[in-house]
Design a protein around this nucleic acid. Structure first.
Lengths: 194, 194
DNA sequence: GACTACCTACCTATCGGTAGATAGATAGAG
DNA sequence: CTCTATCTATCTACCGATAGGTAGGTAGTC
């Protein structure tokens, strides 16, 4: 009764875990084969090359992220609460170590070495995430719930950069709580009157 | 008349450039040999193993960073100007592409895969940088030049995380100006009255 | 003569990837 | 219903290239 395409999904899931741990050059087909329980050659049947695998992986990741944002927009209307929910999502992922890093943020570090097909997806993720954050901040300003000191686009880029840096610090310190320590006050700042 | 130890330095310089481009697993002894113009085996004469090489590299990097901060403390007394100088340093490095990423920030992404000797140095860099930033902010507060909304330590960690995230964004967008766009307003925020 | 810095030549392990076989499911054609 | 052809997913066995690393030699220098 297992899903006929579950092996491909298992491979992607495994590759994602491995990539979160150490980036594009930090894992091999052999690593995946060991975890999934099939032979190296069988992975090539599902994903002819490593580029195919990672491109598919990042593409799936982006689709899930977009879907997550759509759901968040549907369920929460207040812009400040949307940001809180976004931060809360990552806080949970990092605290339970289920996905303690955004793969696009991690891959961005290796960008000069990435295959074009992958780097394009990484750039696209940055653009779309920054775009969404900008729209949330603009809506918050329009509703009088958010007060900014810089253009919404700049504030959005700063917000995103700080979130990515917070992931880095949580990892560097070996302390998952560091993420929330940095990220949570970010939102309160927008609520403060100036 | 060349410095007898210049080859070792050349190797370190080259390795640093390569590591900035793609992290620990993104370069090889063969890459260094090609650039420096010696054979692979000769690198092993100076640095017996890759771990030795990168440990030495990060150690040198940290010493230079500490020395830079000492010089900065000596030349500039105003805390706000110290932060401006720190950001300005990185802005220059990123704009002229001479060193467009902090190697410790980059290595932090791969931390779970790094040899212990390297990961310890990376952690130490994060601690000492955050420590210095905390002291700058505290001094600024004591002098009435800086106003904070959170404890100095938290503000310092946020500052550092945002700077690292700004490096990531500049790389992801392929636009070195993105660094200053994000990092420069950071300092102005401390000057704002609340 | 010891030491330093480099070399050639080589090692084993692993990398991403390929070739060809096999077993099982499926689907038409008679 | 059965025979045959095809497809899918996996396997074993292998490829050339490259990884980090070693052994042993050589030319120059203190």
């Amino acid at each position: 009764m297992s899903n006929p395409s579950s092996t491909a999904d298992n491979i992607l899931d495994c590759a994602q875990t491995l990539i979160v741990a150490g980036g594009y050059n930090g894992f091999s087909y052999a690593d995946i084969a060991d975890v999934v329980g099939i032979r190296k050659a069988s992975i090539h049947h599902h994903f002819p090359s490593k580029v195919d695998l990672v491109r598919t992986l990042v593409s799936r990741y982006r689709e899930e992220a977009e879907a997550g944002i759509v759901a968040l927009e549907r369920e929460i209307s207040d812009p400040v609460e949307q940001l809180r929910s976004y931060i809360g999502y990552w806080e949970k992922c990092i605290m339970d170590a289920s996905a303690p890093f955004c793969i696009c943020a991690l891959l961005a570090g290796e960008l000069p070495l990435l295959p074009d097909q992958v780097s394009m997806q990484v750039r696209a993720h940055f653009r779309s995430l920054a775009g969404w954050l900008t729209s949330v901040l603009e809506r918050g300003v329009a509703q009088g719930r958010i007060h900014l000191n810089a253009p919404a686009r700049v504030e959005a880029e700063t917000f995103m950069a700080t979130v990515h840096g917070a992931m880095l610090s949580a990892r560097a310190y070996g302390d998952p709580r560091m993420f929330a320590t940095i990220a949570t006050p970010l939102i309160e700042r927008y609520a403060a009157r100036h």
